[in-house]
Protein backbone atom coordinates (compact mmCIF):
# COMPACT_ATOMS: atom_id res chain seq x y z
CA UNK A 1 0.00 0.00 0.00
CA UNK A 2 1.25 3.44 -0.87
CA UNK A 3 1.71 5.85 2.00
CA UNK A 4 -0.64 8.76 2.22
CA UNK A 5 0.96 12.19 2.08
CA UNK A 6 -1.27 14.91 3.49
CA UNK A 7 -0.81 18.25 1.72
CA UNK A 8 -2.24 21.51 3.07
CA UNK A 9 -3.05 23.77 0.13
CA UNK A 10 -3.11 27.57 0.21
CA UNK A 11 -5.68 29.43 -1.83
CA UNK A 12 -5.99 33.07 -2.77
CA UNK A 13 -8.82 35.40 -1.66
CA UNK A 14 -10.44 35.18 -5.09
CA UNK A 15 -10.73 31.42 -5.01
CA UNK A 16 -7.67 30.21 -6.88
CA UNK A 17 -5.10 27.74 -5.65
CA UNK A 18 -1.87 29.42 -4.65
CA UNK A 19 1.04 29.19 -7.08
CA UNK A 20 2.84 26.98 -4.55
CA UNK A 21 0.34 24.17 -5.09
CA UNK A 22 1.65 22.42 -8.24
CA UNK A 23 5.14 22.11 -6.72
CA UNK A 24 3.78 20.93 -3.40
CA UNK A 25 1.63 18.23 -4.99
CA UNK A 26 4.56 17.37 -7.25
CA UNK A 27 6.80 16.88 -4.22
CA UNK A 28 4.09 14.84 -2.48
CA UNK A 29 3.63 12.61 -5.54
CA UNK A 30 7.31 11.66 -5.25
CA UNK A 31 6.73 10.48 -1.69
CA UNK A 32 3.42 8.64 -1.89
CA UNK A 33 -0.27 9.17 -2.44
CA UNK A 34 -1.05 12.92 -2.24
CA UNK A 35 -4.23 13.80 -0.37
CA UNK A 36 -5.04 17.51 -0.34
CA UNK A 37 -6.68 19.53 2.41
CA UNK A 38 -8.37 22.83 1.53
CA UNK A 39 -9.81 24.91 4.36
CA UNK A 40 -12.45 27.57 3.83
CA UNK A 41 -13.04 26.98 0.13
CA UNK A 42 -16.67 28.06 0.50
CA UNK A 43 -18.34 28.75 -2.85
CA UNK A 44 -15.10 27.92 -4.68
CA UNK A 45 -15.03 24.30 -3.40
CA UNK A 46 -15.76 22.66 -6.76
CA UNK A 47 -13.27 24.75 -8.71
CA UNK A 48 -10.53 24.34 -6.11
CA UNK A 49 -11.11 20.58 -5.86
CA UNK A 50 -10.88 20.25 -9.62
CA UNK A 51 -7.69 22.31 -9.72
CA UNK A 52 -6.13 20.25 -6.90
CA UNK A 53 -7.00 16.99 -8.67
CA UNK A 54 -5.56 18.33 -11.92
CA UNK A 55 -2.32 19.07 -10.04
CA UNK A 56 -2.13 15.53 -8.71
CA UNK A 57 -4.30 15.18 -5.58
CA UNK A 58 -5.94 11.73 -5.51
CA UNK A 59 -8.42 12.97 -2.95
CA UNK A 60 -9.41 16.43 -1.74
CA UNK A 61 -10.64 16.98 1.81
CA UNK A 62 -12.72 20.13 2.23
CA UNK A 63 -13.06 21.71 5.65
CA UNK A 64 -15.09 24.76 6.60
CA UNK A 65 -13.17 27.90 7.43
CA UNK A 66 -14.10 30.59 9.90
CA UNK A 67 -13.62 34.22 8.94
CA UNK A 68 -13.77 35.36 12.55
CA UNK A 69 -11.08 33.20 14.19
CA UNK A 70 -7.46 33.51 13.21
CA UNK A 71 -5.44 30.38 12.27
CA UNK A 72 -6.90 27.90 14.79
CA UNK A 73 -9.70 26.51 12.55
CA UNK A 74 -7.08 25.52 9.97
CA UNK A 75 -4.93 23.84 12.64
CA UNK A 76 -8.01 21.94 13.84
CA UNK A 77 -8.82 20.89 10.26
CA UNK A 78 -5.28 19.67 9.69
CA UNK A 79 -5.44 17.66 12.89
CA UNK A 80 -8.74 16.08 11.79
CA UNK A 81 -7.37 15.33 8.32
CA UNK A 82 -4.22 13.71 9.73
CA UNK A 83 -6.31 11.57 12.08
CA UNK A 84 -8.35 10.43 9.08
CA UNK A 85 -5.62 9.65 6.55
CA UNK A 86 -2.73 8.68 8.89
CA UNK A 87 -0.13 10.27 6.61
CA UNK A 88 3.54 9.28 6.32
CA UNK A 89 4.29 13.00 6.02
CA UNK A 90 2.47 16.32 6.15
CA UNK A 91 3.49 18.87 3.52
CA UNK A 92 2.63 22.55 3.32
CA UNK A 93 4.01 25.63 1.65
CA UNK A 94 6.51 27.66 3.67
CA UNK A 95 4.03 30.52 3.30
CA UNK A 96 3.13 33.00 5.99
CA UNK A 97 -0.20 31.31 6.63
CA UNK A 98 0.63 27.64 6.33
CA UNK A 99 3.98 27.50 8.10
CA UNK A 100 2.37 28.75 11.30
CA UNK A 101 -0.52 26.31 10.96
CA UNK A 102 1.76 23.30 10.55
CA UNK A 103 4.03 24.43 13.40
CA UNK A 104 1.02 24.51 15.70
CA UNK A 105 -0.17 21.15 14.35
CA UNK A 106 3.30 19.69 15.00
CA UNK A 107 3.54 20.78 18.63
CA UNK A 108 -0.07 19.81 19.22
CA UNK A 109 0.42 16.29 17.91
CA UNK A 110 4.05 15.82 18.96
CA UNK A 111 5.56 15.77 15.48
CA UNK A 112 8.87 17.23 14.31
CA UNK A 113 9.19 19.94 11.66
CA UNK A 114 11.62 20.23 8.75
CA UNK A 115 11.01 23.73 7.53
CA UNK A 116 11.71 25.60 4.31
CA UNK A 117 12.73 22.56 2.25
CA UNK A 118 13.84 23.11 -1.33
CA UNK A 119 13.47 19.41 -2.17
CA UNK A 120 11.88 16.37 -0.57
CA UNK A 121 12.98 12.82 -1.30
CA UNK A 122 12.74 9.38 0.12
CA UNK A 123 15.52 6.90 0.87
CA UNK A 124 15.62 3.51 2.57
CA UNK A 125 15.43 5.12 6.00
CA UNK A 126 12.60 7.51 5.33
CA UNK A 127 11.75 10.95 4.06
CA UNK A 128 14.47 13.56 3.87
CA UNK A 129 14.32 17.26 3.14
CA UNK A 130 16.99 19.46 1.56
CA UNK A 131 17.47 23.05 2.63
CA UNK A 132 19.43 26.01 1.40
CA UNK A 133 21.03 27.78 4.36
CA UNK A 134 22.45 31.29 4.70
CA UNK A 135 21.13 32.42 1.35
CA UNK A 136 22.33 29.39 -0.57
CA UNK A 137 25.89 29.26 0.74
CA UNK A 138 25.25 25.84 2.29
CA UNK A 139 23.06 22.87 1.43
CA UNK A 140 21.75 20.89 4.36
CA UNK A 141 19.63 17.76 4.44
CA UNK A 142 17.46 16.93 7.41
CA UNK A 143 15.18 14.19 8.61
CA UNK A 144 13.21 13.47 11.74
CA UNK A 145 14.29 10.93 14.35
CA UNK A 146 11.00 9.03 14.17
CA UNK A 147 7.30 9.37 13.28
CA UNK A 148 5.80 11.24 10.32
CA UNK A 149 7.60 14.48 9.50
CA UNK A 150 5.89 17.80 8.99
CA UNK A 151 7.64 19.57 6.13
CA UNK A 152 7.21 23.08 4.81
CA UNK A 153 8.39 23.58 1.25
CA UNK A 154 9.84 26.83 -0.09
CA UNK A 155 7.47 28.35 -2.62
CA UNK A 156 8.31 28.11 -6.29
CA UNK A 157 11.41 25.91 -6.07
CA UNK A 158 10.12 22.36 -6.60
CA UNK A 159 10.07 21.51 -10.29
CA UNK A 160 8.39 18.09 -9.97
CA UNK A 161 4.72 17.97 -10.90
CA UNK A 162 1.96 15.48 -10.10
CA UNK A 163 -0.18 13.75 -12.71
CA UNK A 164 -3.82 14.75 -13.15
CA UNK A 165 -6.27 12.64 -11.16
CA UNK A 166 -10.04 12.18 -11.28
CA UNK A 167 -11.75 14.56 -8.87
CA UNK A 168 -12.55 12.86 -5.57
CA UNK A 169 -13.67 15.44 -3.02
CA UNK A 170 -15.21 14.91 0.37
CA UNK A 171 -16.25 17.07 3.28
CA UNK A 172 -14.07 16.76 6.36
CA UNK A 173 -15.76 16.89 9.74
CA UNK A 174 -13.75 19.00 12.18
CA UNK A 175 -14.21 19.30 15.92
CA UNK A 176 -13.13 22.78 17.04
CA UNK A 177 -10.30 22.57 19.55
CA UNK A 178 -11.38 25.69 21.40
CA UNK A 179 -7.77 26.85 21.69
CA UNK A 180 -7.46 30.52 22.60
CA UNK A 181 -7.26 32.49 19.38
CA UNK A 182 -7.11 35.99 18.02
CA UNK A 183 -10.31 37.38 16.57
CA UNK A 184 -10.34 38.59 12.97
CA UNK A 185 -11.95 42.04 13.13
CA UNK A 186 -11.74 42.80 9.44
CA UNK A 187 -10.40 41.38 6.20
CA UNK A 188 -9.50 43.70 3.36
CA UNK A 189 -8.51 42.25 0.04
CA UNK A 190 -6.76 44.62 -2.32
CA UNK A 191 -7.64 44.33 -5.99
CA UNK A 192 -5.47 42.00 -7.98
CA UNK A 193 -2.60 43.97 -9.46
CA UNK A 194 -3.62 45.39 -12.83
CA UNK A 195 -0.16 44.90 -14.30
CA UNK A 196 0.64 41.52 -15.74
CA UNK A 197 4.04 41.65 -14.09
CA UNK A 198 4.83 38.41 -12.24
CA UNK A 199 5.10 38.24 -8.48
CA UNK A 200 8.61 38.49 -7.09
CA UNK A 201 8.38 35.35 -4.99
CA UNK A 202 8.80 32.33 -7.22
CA UNK A 203 9.41 34.42 -10.37
CA UNK A 204 11.51 32.81 -13.11
CA UNK A 205 13.01 36.18 -14.12
CA UNK A 206 13.75 39.12 -11.86
CA UNK A 207 15.07 42.60 -12.61
CA UNK A 208 16.21 44.48 -9.49
CA UNK A 209 17.36 48.02 -8.99
CA UNK A 210 19.66 49.51 -6.40
CA UNK A 211 20.83 52.84 -5.11
CA UNK A 212 22.46 53.45 -8.50
CA UNK A 213 19.04 54.27 -9.95
CA UNK A 214 19.27 57.54 -8.06
CA UNK A 215 15.63 58.44 -7.44
CA UNK A 216 12.20 56.86 -7.21
CA UNK A 217 11.28 58.48 -10.55
CA UNK A 218 14.27 56.98 -12.32
CA UNK A 219 13.51 53.55 -10.84
CA UNK A 220 10.96 53.23 -13.65
CA UNK A 221 13.88 52.05 -15.79
CA UNK A 222 13.89 48.83 -13.76
CA UNK A 223 10.20 48.35 -14.48
CA UNK A 224 10.70 48.99 -18.19
CA UNK A 225 13.36 46.31 -18.49
CA UNK A 226 11.29 43.95 -16.34
CA UNK A 227 8.34 44.38 -18.69
CA UNK A 228 10.53 43.87 -21.75
CA UNK A 229 11.72 40.57 -20.26
CA UNK A 230 8.44 39.52 -18.65
CA UNK A 231 10.22 39.66 -15.30
CA UNK A 232 9.27 40.55 -11.75
CA UNK A 233 10.64 43.72 -10.17
CA UNK A 234 12.91 43.63 -7.13
CA UNK A 235 15.16 46.02 -5.27
CA UNK A 236 18.17 46.08 -3.01
CA UNK A 237 17.83 47.12 0.58
CA UNK A 238 19.59 50.39 -0.25
CA UNK A 239 16.91 51.22 -2.81
CA UNK A 240 14.17 50.38 -0.31
CA UNK A 241 15.83 52.42 2.45
CA UNK A 242 16.15 55.33 0.02
CA UNK A 243 12.39 55.12 -0.55
CA UNK A 244 12.50 54.23 -4.26
CA UNK A 245 10.10 51.29 -3.76
CA UNK A 246 8.18 49.70 -0.86
CA UNK A 247 9.81 47.12 1.36
CA UNK A 248 7.86 44.27 -0.28
CA UNK A 249 10.24 44.62 -3.26
CA UNK A 250 13.33 43.91 -1.18
CA UNK A 251 15.47 41.00 -2.34
CA UNK A 252 17.97 39.85 0.22
CA UNK A 253 18.58 38.17 3.49
CA UNK A 254 15.98 40.38 5.15
CA UNK A 255 13.57 40.37 2.22
CA UNK A 256 12.40 37.95 -0.42
CA UNK A 257 14.82 35.23 -1.43
CA UNK A 258 14.62 34.35 -5.10
CA UNK A 259 16.10 31.60 -7.26
CA UNK A 260 15.11 32.64 -10.78
CA UNK A 261 16.44 31.45 -14.14
CA UNK A 262 17.59 35.03 -14.79
CA UNK A 263 18.48 37.78 -12.34
CA UNK A 264 19.39 41.22 -13.62
CA UNK A 265 20.95 43.59 -11.07
CA UNK A 266 20.87 47.26 -12.08
CA UNK A 267 22.94 49.71 -10.06
CA UNK A 268 23.29 47.21 -7.22
CA UNK A 269 26.67 46.93 -5.54
CA UNK A 270 26.08 43.40 -4.28
CA UNK A 271 26.44 43.57 -0.52
CA UNK A 272 26.41 40.17 1.16
CA UNK A 273 22.99 41.11 2.53
CA UNK A 274 21.69 41.29 -1.06
CA UNK A 275 23.64 38.34 -2.47
CA UNK A 276 22.11 36.08 0.17
CA UNK A 277 18.74 36.69 -1.48
CA UNK A 278 19.65 36.00 -5.09
CA UNK A 279 22.94 34.16 -5.54
CA UNK A 280 21.19 30.86 -6.29
CA UNK A 281 19.84 32.36 -9.54
CA UNK A 282 20.84 30.28 -12.60
CA UNK A 283 22.12 33.26 -14.62
CA UNK A 284 23.09 36.63 -13.14
CA UNK A 285 23.57 39.82 -15.13
CA UNK A 286 24.92 42.95 -13.48
CA UNK A 287 25.23 46.51 -14.73
CA UNK A 288 27.05 48.94 -12.50
CA UNK A 289 29.21 52.03 -12.96
CA UNK A 290 31.63 50.88 -10.27
CA UNK A 291 33.93 48.22 -11.72
CA UNK A 292 34.88 47.09 -8.19
CA UNK A 293 31.26 46.37 -7.19
CA UNK A 294 31.13 42.93 -5.52
CA UNK A 295 28.13 41.94 -7.64
CA UNK A 296 30.56 41.35 -10.53
CA UNK A 297 32.18 38.52 -8.53
CA UNK A 298 29.07 36.39 -9.04
CA UNK A 299 27.77 37.77 -12.34
CA UNK A 300 27.74 35.54 -15.43
CA UNK A 301 27.68 38.66 -17.55
CA UNK A 302 28.81 41.95 -16.05
CA UNK A 303 28.73 45.36 -17.69
CA UNK A 304 30.74 48.22 -16.26
CA UNK A 305 28.66 51.12 -17.46
CA UNK A 306 25.81 53.52 -16.91
CA UNK A 307 22.45 51.81 -16.48
CA UNK A 308 20.79 54.83 -18.10
CA UNK A 309 22.55 54.22 -21.41
CA UNK A 310 23.01 50.42 -21.36
CA UNK A 311 19.46 49.49 -20.34
CA UNK A 312 17.59 51.60 -22.93
CA UNK A 313 19.83 50.09 -25.62
CA UNK A 314 19.12 46.60 -24.27
CA UNK A 315 15.37 47.25 -24.27
CA UNK A 316 15.52 48.59 -27.81
CA UNK A 317 17.50 45.54 -28.95
CA UNK A 318 15.01 43.18 -27.31
CA UNK A 319 12.08 45.00 -28.89
CA UNK A 320 13.74 45.03 -32.29
CA UNK A 321 14.34 41.27 -32.20
CA UNK A 322 10.82 40.65 -30.92
CA UNK A 323 9.31 42.10 -34.08
Amino acid sequence: MTDNILVLLDSTPDGQLSKSVPGLLGAATGLGNPIALIVGAGEHADALSAAAAAAGATKVLLADGDNTIYSTPTVDALQAAAALVQPAAVLAAHSDQSKEVVARFAVRTGAAVNYDAIDVTRDAKGIIASHSAYGGAFVVTSAVTFAAPVITVRQGVVEARGTAQPVVAEKLAVTPSGRKSAAIESIDVADAPTSLRPELRGATKVVSGGRGLGTAEKFVLVEQLADALGAAVGASRAAVDAGFVPQTFQVGQTGVQVSPQLYVALGISGAIQHKAGMQTAKTIIAINKDETAPIFEIADFGVVGDVFTVVPQLIAALEASGK
Binding site: G110, A111, A112, V113, N114, I128, G136, A137, F138, V139, V140, T141, S142, A143, V144, T145, F146, A147, P149, Q279, I284, E291, F296, E297, I298, A299, D300, F301, G302, V303, V304, G305, D306, T309, V310
Partner: peptide, 23 residues
Amino acid sequence: KPRAIMTEISAKPPRAAGVKIVD
Protein backbone atom coordinates in the same frame (compact mmCIF):
# COMPACT_ATOMS: atom_id res chain seq x y z
CA LYS B 1 9.51 13.18 20.97
CA PRO B 2 10.55 13.09 17.33
CA ARG B 3 13.08 15.81 16.50
CA ALA B 4 14.39 17.25 13.28
CA ILE B 5 18.04 16.45 12.79
CA MET B 6 20.59 17.43 10.20
CA THR B 7 21.81 14.43 8.23
CA GLU B 8 24.24 15.99 5.76
CA ILE B 9 25.78 19.34 5.06
CA SER B 10 27.91 20.76 2.30
CA ALA B 11 29.14 24.18 1.32
CA LYS B 12 28.24 25.31 -2.16
CA PRO B 13 31.34 26.16 -4.15
CA PRO B 14 31.58 29.92 -4.50
CA ARG B 15 30.00 31.13 -7.68
CA ALA B 16 32.54 31.95 -10.36
CA ALA B 17 32.42 35.26 -12.17
CA GLY B 18 31.76 35.10 -15.89
CA VAL B 19 32.31 37.68 -18.57
CA LYS B 20 32.82 41.30 -17.57
CA ILE B 21 32.89 44.01 -20.21
CA VAL B 22 33.26 47.78 -20.05
CA ASP B 23 30.54 49.57 -21.98
